[in-house]
Amino acid sequence: MPTVDRLRRYVLESFLFTTDESALDNDDSFLDKGIIDSTGILELVTFLEQEFGIQIADEELLPENLDSIDRLVNFIHRKQS
């Protein structure tokens, strides 16, 4: 499954508790939309590390890297390349 779809399914099911694809646009900000809270960010990081086999450093915990599906896709591709 393409990265973007894996990420979308995870965020939809784990944070929005739905399979309704229209509930999330790829450029929706997780923070502005209240999708992820202070413990949710840990869930997200744990998922990314396990699912994509990457290690995320503390200084990479930035909204620029993690705050939307689009940003996550770019971040993961950068980490994997």
């Binding site: 739905t18 399979t19 202070s38 949710g40």
Partner: peptide, 22 residues
Amino acid sequence: FDPQRVQHLLRKIEHGRVIGFK
């Protein structure tokens, strides 16, 4: 409550994913 959301929450719990305050 919305049954679909609750079922997703239950699946998340059963999968043992990190569970936050919310």
